[in-house]
Every structure is written in structure tokens, then in C-alpha cells.
């Protein structure tokens, strides 16, 4: 590993979900009842922690993350970062979306530079971008357009763009979901490397139970108690193992079985 990037002297923040509930207005033509997606989600991610959020598809994981990012407001309750509430898009957070969402007409480095904080001097910005590209292994592709790189590279660029913001909270929405198995494992290790170098708070939404267990300090399981209606927290699982972990760890395997059971998958 090369030396840690210079400009990463951030302090990780605490993220506090307080009774977060979200209802969307009824779909056009549908019933008049708002669709309740989340209800009373309460947990706290401590500074520097990696917290995974798992749950069945459509249960509101992205909605929860968007509430933390300020991209979508909670209907009830709210999210606090270091004690101050999130109102609107929050400069303390950076999001890596499920899709890389790179601008196709910009080079990889120009895309990463979109994440730089406002007011950073040009030279410092360029320096930071090249450090980040080095970190995610894209230094040789800085000048390429998104159409010229692979899906895994695009995800790494998206991650670098989020890191460019020097976030105190890194919000990752299924960032590796679309990647092939091998690339996914590499990206997980990359994320751990980055976290060692720059231990911000990470909220990681994933549908991959093994990924959650391999990476996180705690796993928040979302589920719908009655099978229908809004989702809430089914369980918060502490993963008390030091990192890096072995993917074959017996304790992890037990927790995996437990989580899959919670998510309704028979073993």
C-alpha cells in the first residue's frame, strides 16, 4: 500500500436515526392511502463504524440511506449527524449509488473531481484526484471516458468520487451489487483498505449477507413484521470480530445462517 492520501484528516461522524418513518404519496391512479415504506427505524452508527443495512428488495434500504444523505426527507422522525439534524443535501455525507452514475462525456478524473469540496484550490484538487485514482487502482485510466472502462472500474471511480468529498459519513447503496463475484470480493477488500487509511463512518446497504458480515461492525436487518406494511428493524447484529476477517470464519458462518433465517431463506 502506498502512503495514505494527505488530505484525509477528517473526523468520522456519528449518525443517529431517530424513529425514521417514510411514506410516499399514493401512486397515480392507485388508492388514496399513502404507501408507508419505513416506520420507526432507530439506531446509531458510531464514528468510524461500518454499519451494514440488509433486507429484502423493496423494503426501504435506499430510502433510509437517502434520508441520511438529505436526498429524501423522512416523513416522521429524522436523522442527526453529530447531533445536528440533516436538512437537505448534507455536505458531511457522500453517496456512492447502486449505479456508478458517471457523466459519460467526462473523463474518469473529471468525474472524480465532481466530488471535490467547493473552494478547494485547483492544484490541491488535482492532487487529491490523482491520489484517489491511485488508491482505487485507476491511475492508468484517468483520461478514459466511462464508456471505455469496465463496470468494476466505473464503480471504483464512483467510490473515488464519493471519497473526494472527504466525507465524514460514507453512504454506499449496494455499490457492488452489479459486479461479478470476483470483482465484488476485490472491491470489498478495497473498501476495507480505504477504511483502514481513512476510518470514516460507513453505512453500507447491501442485499448480500456475506458481504455485510465480512465488512461491517454491525448489521441492521430491516423487515416487515406482518409480511406487509412498513418495514422496521428486525434485528441489529453485532459482528464482534477484528478485521480483516477470514471469509471461512466459523462464527461468520453461524451468523450467516441466522441472518438468512431472519430474511426468510430456509437453510
Amino acid at each position: 500500500m502506498s502512503a495514505a492520501p494527505a488530505a484525509t484528516s477528517t473526523t468520522a461522524a456519528e449518525v443517529d436515526f431517530r424513529g425514521v418513518g417514510k411514506a410516499f404519496p399514493a401512486a397515480r391512479g392507485g388508492g388514496s392511502e399513502p404507501v408507508r415504506v419505513l416506520e420507526d427505524v432507530t439506531f446509531t452508527a458510531r464514528p468510524g463504524e461500518i454499519v451494514a443495512v440488509v433486507g429484502p428488495s423493496g423494503c426501504g434500504k435506499s430510502t433510509l440511506l437517502r434520508a441520511a444523505a438529505g436526498l429524501g426527507r423522512a416523513t416522521t422522525g429524522g436523522v442527526g449527524i453529530d447531533g445536528s439534524p440533516v436538512r437537505g443535501i448534507d455536505p458531511r455525507c457522500a453517496v456512492a449509488f447502486q449505479e456508478p452514475r458517471l457523466l459519460p462525456w467526462r473523463s474518469v478524473s473529471a468525474n472524480v473531481s465532481l466530488g471535490l469540496p467547493r473552494g478547494l484550490p485547483r492544484a490541491a484538487g488535482r492532487q487529491r484526484v490523482s491520489e484517489l485514482l491511485e488508491l482505487v487502482g485507476l491511475a492508468g485510466h484517468a483520461g478514459h471516458r466511462p464508456a471505455e472502462i469496465s463496470g468494476g472500474m466505473a464503480q471504483r471511480a464512483s467510490l473515488a468520487r464519493a471519497l473526494a468529498r472527504n466525507p465524514r459519513v460514507l453512504l454506499l447503496d449496494e455499490p457492488f451489487g452489479a459486479l461479478d463475484a470476483l470483482t465484488r470480493l476485490r472491491m470489498q477488500d478495497l473498501l476495507l483498505d480505504i477504511h483502514v487509511q481513512d476510518p470514516t463512518t460507513v453505512l453500507l446497504v447491501t442485499h448480500d449477507v456475506e458481504e455485510a458480515l465480512y465488512l461491517s461492525d454491525r448489521v441492521v436487518v430491516l423487515g416487515r413484521p406482518e409480511g406487509t406494511g412498513p418495514a422496521g428493524i428486525a434485528e441489529i447484529l453485532d459482528v464482534d470480530l477484528p478485521r480483516p476477517r477470514s471469509r471461512e470464519d466459523a462464527a461468520l458462518a453461524r451468523m450467516r445462517g441466522h441472518l438468512l433465517g431472519l430474511l426468510g431463506v430456509e437453510r
Binding site: 457522500a94 449509488f97 465532481l114
Partner: peptide, 21 residues
């Protein structure tokens, strides 16, 4: 919309959003 949202999530707004995206 996803490009716009991504840019907005990095604090890019108004005229800068227009010229960037």
C-alpha cells in the same frame, strides 16, 4: 434524473448544475 441527483448529492446546484450536467 440520476445524473442530476448524483451531481446534486455532491452539492452542485443552480448554474453550476446546468453547465456541469
Amino acid at each position: 434524473r440520476q445524473w442530476i441527483e448524483a451531481a446534486r448529492s455532491f452539492g452542485i446546484n443552480g448554474l453550476r448544475l446546468f453547465t456541469t450536467v
